[in-house]
Design a protein around this nucleic acid. Structure first.
Length: 759
DNA sequence: AAATGTGGAATTTTT
DNA sequence: TTCCACATTT
């Protein structure tokens, strides 16, 4: 069968795309065309009539990946992609919870808390219950709660091994009841609530199991335990789960990703007579051979792998270039020079990436680029929907949609300032605690007298006026109205640095307009369940949960609030770009993590130093170095044509000069693949003014410079291994140097006896 | 309510 | 060193 859809697929890709109806694990190496396989599989299922758009659920981790998938599927099939469930785990769970909010015991306009909002809510809980932030840091509780939820555990299911944990569990429970009262749902809760919904409601579960005959999962190695269980629950006996992932690119263990899911998949998703298919995609279409050889050689040092070797028929290409600089500034200068000449040869700047392990490293690079007048773009930092002025505007919108939202109330009740101070807030808080109601209800009751009371009443009237004025308006006009009527615009107009914030608020109005234009606002048709299908005793693990009712048809009233509610969810789920993309092409600066999934003509991996990459903190973590090595693997495999690896012998970190030896990862790349660009002498010692760096001599003045030891020199000791000289004292026969060894730490050594060898 | 000071921490991060 | 959160001052 000559199908253009399947043309140009290699045998493994073709096999994956056309697998029969059973679950499959596709081990897809970097650059092996995994997105193509995933999207072609969907198009093939649709095209052959094995699936309808309604029966497909495809899940990714990022909105970007989801959008890309939707775009590519749409291009591959004439069928309508509307109604298809393609999205992030959080996005799909949100969709499910909105459709069944009553069964999930949530208000129709439930609010999604982002990380900031969650921390603020925890601090609010702390204040309300006089919990000591010193002893139980809010951040730590936030981490604890996330962790528990990602294990699928409610407070009553977390084991209290010690007093501290017992208290944290208490705080977790308080947090949860506050969320429930205010109709707030954090990121992990979206997953957990959706999971519990499926577990508790057999009717719903069966409905979705019958509906989705195909589940497709991208970046499967990044799934956490809860996501895995969610998938398992959604997958019925006849569901085919198509999971694509690469264990060598698992770099998110620190945030709960569980590579073991890949190992368990084969067992957990097998069905009687239908074992799980395993396919490896190892042909790489991205990089030249030498780059792949380097990546393969590096990753071979990891013990725990499923095993995979990338290859290409693209030819060897350039060697990997390596450079050792005496300082971080010299490293940056080298990068700038190299970038200039590569750009002069015709490579567009946005095809060149500067990667680093930690964000702090961008400073020095940026400085050098700025002085060289090279345009660049740094990824990371504040995202659009995280900005304070945007959060303020959203808080007003949240109050319009759902006034029970205490978080939103506290955020803007006195912003812009309207004379409601700490004292008044204290009173409001006390009353709401006493009555077990929300701040809004207290504010409405008029229980506060005097000047404070009238200011509060004025605020209530303001919000109610907003609600009345925006009713029935198109979303962007609602936003525009709120931004103006709240006094935010007026406030920022008076502020001297307010111009940018005003522009952002105007951008928010645009964002609302394009959201309405682009977003698929189609409400999922309500699922009709006869009451008998919903077990009356199905109760989520929530205290005081009301009895469950079948999901009702959305009423006209609910439909009217939909656009705003959907936009608020969108704002929480998709934080937006770090900054608006500039017109002209610019160098791309980002962490290695941020580079995952991207590719560039030329890649610089900077800061290849022990302690930085691999990061020192990872050395104490279980499998920490292996994860760092996978990170390096990701960095290398981003490059199509040119790969530069650089190292600085000294680097300013936390205001102190640090002396580092070259990263083990550089050593793990076979020598014959590497072309050294730094002069030999520079690799031998620090090529700077001796007086500044405190040179010491182990022998009389007459000896040649070869016997001069300098701070920063990398050395090898017969017993202690490799290290770097970080201090020195004495002269001649008394000379001693302090060496920071990679494996055994810092030691003072007498030069006369130590028999140090230059590296 | 804004302005200024102080102490502590400083991988990686999407939703 | 630099950034942030939080506390104190004005």
């Amino acid at each position: 069968m000559a199908s253009p859809l399947l043309a140009n697929l290699n045998p493994e890709q073709l096999a994956a795309v056309t697998l029969p109806h059973a679950s499959a694990l596709i081990l897809a190496g970097a650059g092996s065309g995994k997105t193509r396989v995933l999207t072609t599989r969907i198009a093939w299922l649709l095209g052959t009539g094995q699936a309808s758009p309604l029966s497909i659920l495809a899940v990714t981790f990022t909105n970007k990946a989801a959008k890309e998938m939707l775009t590519r599927v749409s291009a591959l099939t004439p069928m309508h992609t509307r109604g298809m469930w393609i999205g992030t785990f959080h996005g799909l769970c949100n969709r499910m919870l909105r459709a069944h909010h009553r069964a999930a015991q949530l208000p129709p306009a439930f609010q999604i808390l982002d990380t900031q909002d969650q921390l603020a809510l925890i601090k609010r809980v702390y204040r309300a219950h006089n919990i000591d932030d010193e002893r139980y840091p809010a951040r730590q509780l936030q981490y604890f709660i996330m962790n528990a939820k990602e294990q699928g555990r409610r407070p009553n299911a977390v084991e209290a091994t010690d007093e501290f944990t017992r208290r944290q569990i208490e705080h977790y429970a308080l947090y949860e009841s506050t969320c429930q009262r205010e109709g707030a749902v954090d990121f992990a809760e979206l997953l957990l609530r959706s999971y519990e919904l499926l577990l508790a409601h057999e009717g719903l579960r069966e409905h979705y199991r019958r509906r989705f005959s195909h589940l497709l999962v991208d970046e499967f190695q990044d799934t956490n335990l809860l996501q895995y269980q969610w998938l398992r629950t959604l997958a019925g006996p006849d569901t085919a789960v198509f999971a694509v992932g690469d264990d060598d690119q698992s770099i998110y263990a620190f945030r709960g990703a569980n590579v073991a899911n890949m190992q368990h998949f084969e067992h957990d998703f097998a069905r009687p007579d239908r074992p799980v298919h395993l396919i490896k995609l190892e042909q790489n279409y991205r990089s030249h051979g030498t780059i792949l050889d380097a990546a393969n050689a590096l990753i071979r040092n990891n013990q725990t792998r499923l095993g995979k070797n990338l290859w290409t028929d693209a030819g060897k290409g350039d060697p990997v270039r390596a450079f050792v600089a005496p300082t971080d500034h010299a490293e940056a200068a080298f990068v700038v020079d190299a970038v200039k000449s590569i750009a002069d040869d015709g490579t567009p700047l946005d095809e060149i990436a500067l990667l680093y392990r930690s964000n702090a490293q961008s400073r020095v690079l940026e400085h050098a680029l700025f002085n060289a007048a090279l345009p660049y773009r740094v990824y990371g930092g504040m995202r659009f929907f995280e900005r304070a002025e945007i959060k303020h505007a959203l808080a007003y919108l949240r109050l319009v949609a759902m006034p029970e939202d205490d978080g939103a109330m506290l955020r803007v009740i006195n912003f812009p300032p309207r004379g409601i101070g700490a004292r008044t807030l204290e009173q409001l808080g006390e009353q709401s605690r006493g009555q077990g109601t929300t701040l809004w209800q207290v504010a409405c009751s008029g229980a506060l007298g005097g000047k404070a009371g009238s200011a509060v009443s004025a605020f209530v009237r303001l919000v109610e006026a907003m609600r009345a004025a925006t009713r029935g308006l198109p979303l962007s006009e609602q936003v525009a109205h709120v931004v103006e009527a709240s006094g935010l615009l007026a406030h920022y107009r008076q502020e001297k640095d307010g111009q940018e914030r005003i522009e952002n608020l105007e951008e928010l109005v645009n964002a609302a307009a394009s959201f309405v234009r682009e977003a698929d606002l189609a409400v999922d048709a309500p699922i009709r369940l006869s009451p008998s299908e919903v077990p009356a005793d199905a109760v989520l693990a929530l205290a005081g949960a009301p009895p469950v009712e079948p999901p009702p048809e959305p009423t006209a009233e609910e439909g009217a609030t939909d656009a705003l509610t959907a936009f608020l969810a969108h704002a929480a789920l998709e934080a937006g770009d770090t900054q608006a993309a500039e017109g002209r092409p610019a160098l791309q600066l980002m962490t290695v993590h941020a580079a995952k999934g991207l590719e560039f003509h030329t890649v610089f991996v900077t800061g290849l130093e022990e302690g930085l990459f691999p990061h020192e903190n990872s050395l104490n973590e279980l499998d920490g170095v292996e994860e760092e090595r996978r990170l390096m693997y990701v960095a290398i495999t981003r490059a199509r044509r040119k790969l530069y690896l650089t190292h600085a012998q000294t680097r300013m970190l936390h205001g102190q000069t640090r002396y580092n030896i070259v990263s083990r990862f550089l050593d793990e790349i076979p020598r014959e693949l590497v072309q050294w660009l730094s002069p030999r002498s520079q690799r031998m010692s620090i090529d700077v003014d001796a007086s500044e760096w405190g040179a010491v001599q182990s022998a009389p003045q007459a000896t040649p410079p070869a016997s001069t030891w300098r701070i920063g020199q990398s050395v090898r000791h017969a017993k202690f291994g490799v290290g770097v000289i970080i201090d020195a004292e004495g002269r001649g026969g008394d000379a001693r140097v302090q060496v920071n060894f990679r494996d055994v730490g810092v030691k003072w050594l007498a030069l006369e006896y130590a028999r140090l060898e230059r590296v």
